[in-house]
Design a protein around this nucleic acid. Sequence first.
DNA 1: GCAAAAGTGTTGAAAGTACACCCATGA
DNA 2: TCATGGGTGTACTTTCAACACTTTTGC
Lengths: 216, 216
Amino acid sequence: MNKSLGHEKYKYAAVATDVVIFTVVRGELKVLLIKMKKKPYTNKWALPGGLVHAEESVDDAAKRILEEKTGVSKVYLKQLAAFGRVGRDPFGRVVSVAYFALVSSDKLKLKTTEEYSDVAWFDVKKVTDLAYDHDEILRTAVSQLKGELMYSKISAGLLPTEFTLTDLQHLYEVILNRNIDKRNFRKKIQQSGLIKAVGKQRKGTASRPAALFKFI
Amino acid sequence: MNKSLGHEKYKYAAVATDVVIFTVVRGELKVLLIKMKKKPYTNKWALPGGLVHAEESVDDAAKRILEEKTGVSKVYLKQLAAFGRVGRDPFGRVVSVAYFALVSSDKLKLKTTEEYSDVAWFDVKKVTDLAYDHDEILRTAVSQLKGELMYSKISAGLLPTEFTLTDLQHLYEVILNRNIDKRNFRKKIQQSGLIKAVGKQRKGTASRPAALFKFI
DNA sequence: GCAAAAGTGTTGAAAGTACACCCATGA
DNA sequence: TCATGGGTGTACTTTCAACACTTTTGC
């Protein structure tokens, strides 16, 4: 969405997609932002996005943009909503279909340091004043992420295939931004049917070995 | 969406909106469909829809189309999802943002009889084989409608401003397609804070008068 | 007084929440 | 043996589900 469209001269609106890419690092829920060059958003941060090409589905466009910005593929992307206010994009009449995804920060550490300096992770709690209507998109994404966390496998992207219940709980605590009771969490998540024990243990931890689980 | 676009020649996708308009008549949940003329969908039924103009928001486009097809305005339209498969529209590369609404059948009785014969209400349970990907859109809409019914005021569009709890329960039973316990329903809906008593009663009913309520 | 719909409570089950101690391992 | 994190159960509260009779009105 940082290309000029000149779509003002067309009679109809064009389609873009913006992707809210979350990760968790050092106990913080972070979102990937890119720094813009073009006026009127010079040096403003924005969600990664781009126009949907004629020969690709909107889902595929979101995947493409995710991969372009992070190098990560095969991540589950979830459609959030369409944002279609008239003035939302000063470069033309563009409707954006927003997606969100959770990606493990170590899977893309290389990419974010290799990439130019105008791509960076930001603590979600501190982000404000994004370009376009991206503050609104981000708020919607955070809210939907929290709502779905306990009822879906979206968090799988943030953990290795095999993980401990404590790993999972810590992840949930960061995303939900609150403490969770260990016993209640274990009861609920094991009853949910979303994960199952793999029958192995994680050793070498200077403490009692933890059972490993995986998403089904 | 029943206009040729020729958007194949553009590089990017265009935006349309399709509106799933529900009503309840004679104990059935019905959806408004229009009969198409153009190949390859000649005589197929489809959801009302159309392209989003450059100067209107997607929300406004959905409202406009709702009003064009039903004559009803000031109805709450809820965004459902965007549908963006490449081949979903044989006339061009079009991404549709779908909405749904509930409108009282008596508010638009005139309109549907005045309108030409290729607009009609269909029992949702019997609808199949719609044009485009409209079967999928309809299924998604029905599912979301059922899910939100108890937690929002969307059903307000289907009732007069003042209604009895029995009216509301009958409506819910039709939409959810199951019986609801009267006492549990009354407890839950009155605790929800979505409605409140207006302090009046409906008289002249050959039975005990019922208290009237309204949505807040 | 009777037909017709309005209105109202209780009990049991299930799910959610709060809370504290013992266990297995590596160092 | 101790430091570290792993693992477990119970009591209370809240929510959901099942279920039947009395009340008020018009005729």
